[in-house]
Every structure is written in structure tokens, then in C-alpha cells.
Design a binder for these strands. Structure first.
Lengths: 260, 260
DNA sequence: GCAAAAGTGTTCCATGTACACCCATGT
DNA sequence: ACATGGGTGTACATGGAACACTTTTGC
């Protein structure tokens, strides 16, 4: 049986929070087309890979993060015949979240990697390669609404985190202040989180984030981590996701309509 | 630049309600592999088609429905290297909804088309070709949750419908009884629906569904249409979707946890 | 002591739920 | 007349929003 041949790629919208700002990883293209423009990290799916595997491989190649240091989910497929001038391609887009990133490094044909504030793209001030503006918009929408119904917000934090840290994630991504008291109850009563073990809470070594997360970016000394470990005030108890991975919340955490 | 060539297909999970039962359109495969098994309708994406176009084309070919007589949305891409024994394929799955179907007809290499109760597949009693069991499960989940937050339920109805008809859609798909009084208010106050114009309400010709929807299936005389046009009781006023297409509800219509 | 943040209590109000009840029509 | 389903009114429960207040620590 004959069929029209396609190139199939994966593209990943990797989000993180840095300097209390919602950011996305973009790479500067080293080759044509769109040479020098910013684009989502990604690449061809290999002949014997599943789509998720391809996305995870690309993510590891582009970021240097250890496998599993992120949360990765499929977004959608994009297949406009004109989306790549070189050939007929279909790309399967993914979105991903990580707590923090080491100094971004360029790899392969990517000239350089940058963490760019999402707001800069949403304002229309940044033209990305291919149809990546559209993909980013869709991915941002997905993450924003995912905060309501799932526990993915915790993926922006180290494994053990304070209530204030998690709240800051919501506030940063929704661009909305949340009531600390009510948020406290949400964390306590939703059933999705459990207090970190006493040992973990006491021992700063065990409670610390993995090594690759610990290096602060030199030019950005005020990371969000600092906000969670205030020097004033009551020492915060730490929480962890129940049973590891993120999942659906029994009751959504509503946000008001009209936030950013 | 060289790249691994893929075949890209679309598969469509088309849902409808017939005989007050939530059903999906499946075709009996006429060729190998999985000859004789049931599968989702679908086919190759052509060289100069977008993915949505390909899905719409396949839908029209397989059902004979007029373009636009359905609601179609992308679900996800599936690309397990072993999903098709013949070649490396990625399929982009869609889900679709239509108010009713003409007598299903086989087309192309599809030996025959059938409307199968979704419950039959969910119970595990029906083995579909390829990875289509998984796709159907994902599509059903999507439609079920979509009822909560969007107006897609109206796509199961003719353009103008009664409150009872729409309620029956929810009850059928969620397998849960809903309070008629409260549902009445939901339709009236949600802002998503508006009363059909008086003329449309009075004139049975204009208010009638398109011709291809009117033919009842001979062996199933008791269609859901009858439920909306009761002969007893107050004559139902009819409602239409505001501004044509479906969209997000300002407030979700919650369903209880634990329904089917 | 004072500032800052954790965490709790409590009130108020919007919304959902249950259910009684009235209304309009076909048989 | 009365059965049937459309449609409304209403009382109660629930859950979220706002905010006062207490607690604990660093400076």
C-alpha cells in the first residue's frame, strides 16, 4: 500500500518559574529556515520511538535535566501543509514543567537556549519560528487551566515545598493574588498533598532539591526558592505530593475569570 | 535533510445518541490487517491537507453527512511504533458529535458501518483493531468531561431543541438522572442558549431537523427525537445555541463523582 | 519588641440541591 | 377530567471569599 510520506517531529513547551516569573524555554535556531529566530526545542521522531519517548529524549538533550525531573504531557498535533517550507511535517507538541533549570545550554543545531517570560510572548512582542506562537499559546492555556483541576502546580516546586511556595506558583501563573488562609486549607484538605515526614522536614540536606536544581542562576540571585525559605516568620512545614505523580483534584481550585 | 518517513492518518470517534443510547460509529474492516474487526473510521492524510480537513473529509466519506452537520475536535496523536504492523504510522485522533445519522453505509474498503453502544466497548466486550480501544476510551472521557464545561451536548440535538431533549443527552451520556427543574434554570440562565424565534417555534417545517436527520431507523422507531416532542403535556418551547457554535460555559454543570 | 509569615476561626454570601407546586395540553 | 411533562418557587445545605486573629520565629 502506498501512502504520502511525512516527517514527524515533537516540539516541547517547557515551563518553569524563575525570579517569580512564568518562563518558557526557547532555543535560538542555528540553521535555516528561521535562522536566528526563537523556537521551541524539538526534533524528529526516530523510527522506533514512541512519541512520548521522543519528547523525553529531546527534552533531556536540550536541557541536560535528568530523566524524570520534569512532568511531560502531550498537547496536540499540528499539521498545516505550509507549516514547514522544507517538507510536509506533522509535529506533535508537548508541554512540560520543571522546578528549575540549570544554566540553559545550547545543544545540536541550537545556537543557544533562553528562558523567556511567557508574558513577552503573549503580548505579541516575540515572533517565533514556524507555527510555534500558536503552540505556545495553546500550551499556556493548557497549563493555566490545568492548575485548576490537577496537581501540576507542584511540579514547579522541589519535591518538598511549603504552602507559600505552592501558592506563589498559582499567583505567578494566574497573575492573581490568592488568600493565604484559604489556600492553606486547600493544601491541607484537598487530599492531594501530605506533610513531608518529620525527618525530611528537619534535615535540610534530605529536604533540599536535587543537585542540578540547587545552582542559582548567578545573575538572578533572588530565586523563588528564597521566597519559600524566609528568614523571618514562622518556619514553614513542608508538603509533598501524595503518591508521587500529579493527578486530578477532587474539587477544582477556581480562579476568577478575567485574570491574565 | 533526511528524516524517517511516516504514514500519517486520522481516525474519528463519531458519537451520537440513538434509541436513548450513547453510540459510536465503527466500521468493519474489509482488508488486512484486522480484517473483519471493528475499527474507527479514518484514513491517510493527503499531501496538501491540514489535519482537520482530512478528518472532515473522512467523516463525510464514511457517513454521507453534509459538511458542517457535525462538531469535530482533535483528541490526540498516537504513535506507538508497533501500532500498525504494516508500517510506521502516527494517527491523529479526533472526536466528533452529530445529532443523528442516516442509515450507516459502508464506503471504500470499509465492509460495513455500525452504530455500537459505547457501553459495549467500555465493558471490554469488544476488541477493536489497532489501538482503537484506547482511542475510544480517551474520546469518551473527553466527551463526558466536555459536557460539564462546554455546550457540546447541544450538538447531539437538532438545531432547535427542547430543554427535555438536552437534559436527556446529559442523562444518557453521564448515565445519571438530573433534576428537571434545576436543569431548566441551567438552560435559561447559563447564557449559552437562547429561545428559538417565535416563527421558528411555530413553523414545524423551519424548526425541523435537516432532511438527512429526519429518517428514523426503521428497526428502531423510538428515537430520542420522540422524547423531545411529547404528545402529552405542555408544548415545549425550543432553544438554540447562542451564536451558532459550541463554546465554554461560564459555570460548569457539575456531575456527581461516581457516575458511569 | 517588632516585623513577617504560618496557620486557624468565623462570618457572609453565592451557588447547588431537593422537592413541592402550578400550568398547559392531548387524549 | 386527568395524566403527563413543561416550567417556577422556595427552603436548605454546601462551599468559597474575605478577613480578623493567634502563633512562631529572626532581627
Amino acid at each position: 500500500m502506498d501512502y504520502p510520506p511525512f516527517a514527524v517531529t515533537v516540539d516541547i513547551a517547557l515551563f518553569t518559574i524563575q525570579d517569580e516569573t512564568f518562563k518558557i524555554l526557547l532555543i535560538e535556531r542555528g540553521g535555516d529556515p528561521y535562522r536566528g529566530d526563537l523556537a521551541l526545542p524539538g526534533g524528529f521522531v526516530l523510527p522506533d520511538e514512541d512519541l512520548d519517548m521522543a519528547a523525553a529524549r529531546e527534552l533531556e538533550e536540550e536541557t541536560g535535566l535528568a530523566d524524570g525531573a520534569w512532568h511531560l504531557e502531550q498537547l496536540a498535533a499540528y499539521g498545516d501543509p505550509a507549516r514547514d517550507p522544507r517538507m510536509r511535517t506533522v509535529t506533535v507538541a508537548f508541554w512540560a514543567i520543571t522546578a528549575d533549570l540549570p544554566r540553559p545550554r545550547g545543544g545540536g543545531d541550537a545556537a543557544a537556549a533562553h528562558l523567556v517570560p511567557v508574558a513577552r510572548i503573549e503580548s505579541g512582542g516575540l515572533r517565533l519560528a514556524f507555527d510555534h506562537n500558536r503552540i505556545v499559546d495553546d500550551a499556556v492555556k493548557e497549563v493555566r487551566s490545568g492548575l485548576e483541576t490537577t496537581t501540576i502546580a507542584a511540579q514547579f516546586c522541589p519535591p518538598a515545598f511549603t504552602v507559600a511556595r505552592l501558592r506563589k506558583v498559582y499567583e505567578t501563573i494566574w497573575n492573581t493574588p490568592l488568600d493565604p488562609g484559604n489556600f492553606q486549607r486547600f493544601v491541607r484538605d484537598s487530599g492531594a498533598f501530605t506533610p513531608a515526614a518529620a525527618a525530611e522536614r528537619m534535615d535540610p540536606v534530605k529536604a533540599a532539591a536535587p543537585s542540578f536544581l540547587s545552582e542559582p542562576s548567578d545573575d538572578h540571585p533572588e530565586t523563588l526558592e528564597a521566597a519559600g525559605q524566609s528568614r523571618r516568620g514562622r518556619p514553614a512545614s513542608r508538603w509533598v505530593l501524595r503518591e508521587g505523580g500529579p493527578r486530578l483534584l477532587a474539587r477544582p481550585l477556581r480562579r476568577k475569570a478575567g485574570d491574565a
